[in-house]
Design a protein around this nucleic acid. Structure first.
Lengths: 144, 144
DNA sequence: CGCTAACCTTACGTAAACGTTAGGTTGGTG
DNA sequence: CACCAACCTAACGTTTACGTAAGGTTAGCG
């Protein structure tokens, strides 16, 4: 079972940011301190970390969340990361249940944010369409 | 026909920004120089200006456009504003037609941007839902 | 015509989110 | 084991999008 290990450059490229951004996010506490490495050593990441970072970037880009807002959202995630570590080793069913039970409301919150944004965007789109229809009608009237 | 005239404070409050923001946008050329006033005189706005500013703010907030990107979008708008001035005075039908013909693709571009964002958001929402369904299934399995 | 709140210009200040540079270290490869 | 690309830390720099302060002016009201 070879757990492919990634370095910061790889990860950065995969999610479309620079290494600096990743270090900065780590500094802010957005990334779960990535398994204590000794001072000076290269950071290492797993595939799962790529996904988690992608998620943050999307929340930032699509919803315009600030890093501080992301931090709030990630705090629950933080705890999950600790638990996720245990998932790999000795997951009693009871523990698995707790992990899943923590993950659900977290994802639900993200979904709620996305839904909210979808709603306002829908409204905006409808207004633009109304405007467009009016303009087109006007155009027909004038070019008769 | 009393064209209600607004001052910067009013406008700012209506769209939920500060006067400073409005002056800044004007400085960048995002607002059509608002009918040359003499140096030191108060800026004056019409109702239509409130709408145009609202539009910019929404594009900024909902799509995360930078002011420079807004500027590109507004350059066509710029020309429109000039034309719109004429609408008030002596609009021959031929001129009206040209104005409408310029306005249509402008609104279409905005709508295209919104559609694009809607699509990526839809995808994001679907992914989150899939994730959520998996988690819930897992939860049922574990709590049996 | 005088008052004063709201405006004006100019200029410097600031927070967020990284970019960039300098000088040194690590770790996979031949 | 020597090399060198990719990494490390620490620190200062930069851009965007305004905030804020100072000193003066305008314009609606009584």
């Amino acid at each position: 079972m070879s757990a492919t290990v990634l370095r910061i450059g790889e990860v950065a490229q995969r999610v479309g940011v620079t290494p600096r951004t990743i270090r900065y996010y780590e500094e802010l506490g957005l990334l779960g301190s990535a398994s204590a490495r000794d001072k000076g050593a290269h950071r290492t990441y797993a595939e799962a970390d790529v996904g988690r970072l992608q998620e943050l970037i999307r929340l930032r880009d699509l919803l315009g969340l600030t890093l501080e807002e992301l931090l709030e959202l990630a705090e629950a995630e933080e705890a999950r990361a600790v638990l996720r570590g245990r998932w790999e080793e000795d997951p009693s069913d009871e523990e698995r249940l707790r992990i899943v039970e923590e993950a659900i409301p977290h994802v639900e919150r993200q979904l709620a944010l996305v839904r909210g944004r979808q709603a306002t965007l829908d409204e905006f789109a409808r207004e633009l369409e109304t405007k467009l229809r009016r303009l087109r009608r006007r155009h027909r009237e004038l070019s008769s």
